[in-house]
């Protein structure tokens, strides 16, 4: 059987009635399907910290959620941006200034408060190992789902798109984790959450360069 280009064009034109879903819709569906898996991991392994009702009155506890949710939101916006083939690179980087800026403001704010614990103690915390394990593990279902969703797009920089999907997944997983962790110091968050996020971002970049080519 042969297929010359005119015949292919005729065939493609005949398929014009097929309307693919927007990438954002598919990505949302995939994340909604994966979120329960991550939440199940969270509640079976960790759970919310027992003093959560009092912790909510601590602005540094609340700041963790502002940072992780800002990271997740920036990741979603950047993923959708990068799912279009022709977009310039410069357009989305500033989104990630928001979570970084929130963290910097948190560190400055904490430095101005009277402290009961020395700086290194706050930085090292008592949950760094759990943090470094739980955030990447809970990210994995979300990362896999977002890579699947983004395959519906046309990213011409697949590794970068995968890395951004990693940032988004880490942001969501860190949001869950933040409600478990009793270390609220922005120094702890900046160190350990960032390391965990970097790990997930690297996995995302590798997965992206493998699975997001089209």
């Amino acid at each position: 059987m042969r297929m010359d280009t005119d015949q292919l064009i005729r065939t493609l034109a005949a398929d014009n009635s097929y309307r693919p879903r927007p990438v954002g819709f598919v990505l949302a569906l995939m994340l909604l399907a994966a979120a329960p898996v991550s939440l199940l991991m969270f509640f079976s392994m960790l759970g919310v910290r027992p003093d959560v009702m009092t912790a909510m009155h601590n602005p540094l506890f609340d700041l963790k959620f502002a940072v992780t949710l800002a990271l997740a939101a920036a990741g979603i916006a950047a993923s959708l941006h990068l799912s279009r083939p022709e977009v310039p690179l410069a357009g989305f980087g500033w989104l990630f200034v928001i979570p970084a800026g929130l963290l910097a403001a948190g560190i400055a704010g904490e430095a101005m408060m009277p402290q009961r614990l020395p700086m290194m103690t706050r930085l090292v915390g008592s949950n760094s190992r759990v943090c470094m394990t739980a955030i990447p593990l809970m990210s994995l279902p979300l990362l896999a789902a977002s890579i699947l969703g983004l395959r519906h797009g046309a990213p011409t920089r697949p590794a970068l798109a995968g890395a951004v999907a990693g940032l988004m997944s880490a942001g969501l997983a860190a949001t869950f984790y933040a409600s478990h962790c009793t270390d609220d110091s922005p120094l702890f968050v900046t160190t350990w959450y960032t390391l965990a996020t970097a790990l997930v971002t690297t996995i995302g970049a590798l997965a992206g360069s493998r699975f997001l080519r089209f």
Partner: peptide, 28 residues
């Protein structure tokens, strides 16, 4: 390229010019 144009055309923004999108797909 024609197959990719067809299967990825939902990533084109109807308010944007078509040629830059097409050339990005073709280049890829």
């Amino acid at each position: 390229i024609l197959l990719a144009v067809h299967l990825k055309r939902h990533t084109w923004d109807v308010n944007a010019p078509f040629a830059p999108w097409l050339f990005a797909i073709a280049r890829n």
